[in-house]
């Protein structure tokens, strides 16, 4: 356990500097988005109210009041989130491959540590999760700051202040911040399974190199296929025999089996087949 925690901390610190850069870039992009959108709206309001002699109430009726929804749907905001997603996706691969880089490959030392090699696998997965959840928390905190900035720029009569939930529910943000705790656990549970399957596929490549790429991809496809099996069988073989609740339970069980499979195969590969 102690070894595992140390390894998690080690993996965390290795990426920390780049992570901080990612956090700062996100903050800058999103605050920029708020300022651009709020000022744009107020400019339009001024033009219409003073230029076309429209009353404030009529302007709000015709153009809709300002909400954070506009900010969330702006390009800067969208790309800030896309950037975080892409960086973390790349890091899921890089967290393994960096150990093989350089002349004295670091993986050699890691594998020699007097602990179960599976800890290495778990530590890397945990580090990825911490980075993901950290960014989710950052988004929530940023929302509070951004709403304050919006309040400074857009006067109260022009805006409708809604709880954060209203901005995350009906668009791409609902993937990052699902509506309820159960959904949060389901979504990120699926994320954990996906990360582990990817890790095991990477290990296939690291064990068998060129041939391993084919093994890794086939393993990934088999995992996805197994996970979708209840749905596929119900749709194409049983002609929608099961009720949604029954399918849901089967999917959860299939997900757990895929996860156990990924960890078990990963453990086997690390223990007996890994090459440095």
């Amino acid at each position: 356990m102690n070894r595992y925690l140390k390894l998690v901390n080690f993996e965390f610190n290795r990426f920390f500097k780049l992570y901080i850069v990612l956090v700062i870039v996100t903050i800058i992009m999103q605050i920029f988005a708020v300022i651009v959108e709020s000022r744009g709206y107020m400019r339009e309001a001024k033009n219409v109210i003073y230029g076309d002699m429209m009353s404030k109430a009529d302007f709000i009726k015709n153009y809709e009041a300002f909400t954070m929804q506009r900010v969330v749907q702006s390009n800067w905001f969208y790309w800030s989130i896309a950037l975080c997603v892409v960086v973390l996706l790349i890091y899921v691969f890089f967290i393994w491959y960096r150990d093989w880089l350089g002349k004295n490959s670091f993986i050699y030392r890691l594998l020699m540590l007097p602990t179960a090699r599976l800890n290495l696998y778990f530590a890397k997965a945990t580090a990825i999760l911490i980075f993901v959840f950290g960014l989710v928390a950052l988004q929530l905190l940023l929302f509070l700051i951004e709403m304050q900035i919006m309040k400074w720029i857009v006067p109260a009569e022009f805006r409708v202040d809604l709880p954060i939930k209203e901005y995350t529910d009906f668009n791409y943000l609902s993937v990052i911040l699902p509506g309820s705790l159960i959904d949060f656990l389901l979504f990120y549970g699926m994320g954990i399974v996906a990360v582990c399957v990817t890790f095991t596929a990477i290990l296939f490549e690291r064990c068998y190199r060129l041939k391993g790429i084919i093994f890794g991809i086939s393993y990934g496809l088999v995992s996805v296929g197994f996970f979708l099996m209840p749905l596929l069988i119900d749709t194409f073989v049983l002609n929608y025999y099961f009720f949604p609740v029954e399918l849901f339970v089967m999917e959860v069980i299939a997900g757990i089996i895929v996860l156990i499979g990924a960890v078990w195969i990963g453990n086997y590969l690390l223990k007996y087949k890994i090459r440095v």
Binding site: N9, F12, G134, V136, L141
Partner: peptide
């Protein structure tokens, strides 16, 4: 570092 990130995450989410 890791403890700070974890605490912030747990409290916020």
């Amino acid at each position: 570092k890791i403890i700070v990130v974890l605490i912030i995450t747990v409290i916020t989410v």
